[in-house]
């Protein structure tokens, strides 16, 4: 399964990349993906797939574009 992960704002520096392709042999959830990425624990996040919010338990599908951002509040 191939997916693209895009980091936003401070997460770019945590993860060490802006956007990157990942390949996984087994299906995984958003929560499992996050644990692979070694982001700082505890910082609130908003995860978006193809422009729509998704939860930690949601399964990721082949070809997904997953965007991980801090909780923005509109300045």
């Amino acid at each position: 399964m191939k997916i693209l992960v895009k980091m936003i704002g401070p997460f770019i520096y945590d993860a060490g990349f802006n956007e990157k392709d990942f390949e996984f042999s087994n299906p995984l959830s958003v929560e499992e993906l996050l644990s692979e990425l070694h982001l700082k624990q505890g910082r609130p996040k908003i995860i978006v797939r193809n422009g729509h919010g998704i939860g930690l338990k949601d399964q990721i599908a082949d070809g997904d574009r997953i965007v991980i951002a801090p909780i923005y509040s509109g300045g």
Binding site: I8, G9, Y13, V67, P70
Partner: peptide
């Protein structure tokens, strides 16, 4: 700690 000021308010543009 949060790194917010690194990009400031423009952090939201990519999002």
């Amino acid at each position: 700690e949060s790194g917010w000021s690194k990009q400031g308010t423009d952090g939201i543009l990519a999002w």
